[in-house]
């Protein structure tokens, strides 16, 4: 959806979760930059990065532990805030997927693919939330 996404409808201090593969964490527990890529799907309909919004998860009675269980043992959950993403030029929006409450999406507001530098900056902001 870019062009600001749902900015204004999602609190800037809302925590945003992202599931990343454990195998893509470095030994110190920090995620590699490549963990923060848009999905390269065939038809482009999901050409964004999947995230989960804590406020909507809470409203539906699920926690980050439930999210970790949903993704399974091959994944870790990291978190940042909506403000972190917006500061990095991201548009964020709610995008219910019918699989787990709070699903949302983000993408560069200009619609372009993230560069490795932009991925790196997001990776540096990410904190483990399930460790």
């Amino acid at each position: 959806m870019p062009e600001g996404g749902d900015l204004g409808k999602i609190p800037l201090d809302c925590v945003v979760y992202r599931a990343v593969k454990l195998i893509n964490l470095k030994p110190d527990g920090t995620p590699q930059s490549g963990c923060f890529s848009d999905l390269a799907d065939a038809d482009g309909s999901k050409d964004y990065m999947s995230v989960y919004f804590a406020d909507e998860m809470a409203a539906n009675g699920v926690s980050v532990k439930d999210l970790a269980a949903h993704w399974g043992e091959r994944y870790a959950i990291v978190e940042f805030t909506v403000a972190d993403l917006v500061t990095e030029g991201e548009a964020v929006w709610r995008d219910p997927d019918g699989k787990f409450p709070g699903h949302g999406a983000c993408k560069r507001a200009d619609g372009l693919k993230r560069t490795v530098g932009q991925k790196r900056r997001i990776a540096k902001l990410a904190r483990r939330s399930d460790a």
Partner: peptide, 15 residues
């Protein structure tokens, strides 16, 4: 450290 991104990219990084 290396990865295959969801955006079909190969990533490698050195600290």
């Amino acid at each position: 450290f290396f990865n295959v991104g969801d955006d079909a990219t190969l990533g490698a990084e050195w600290d």
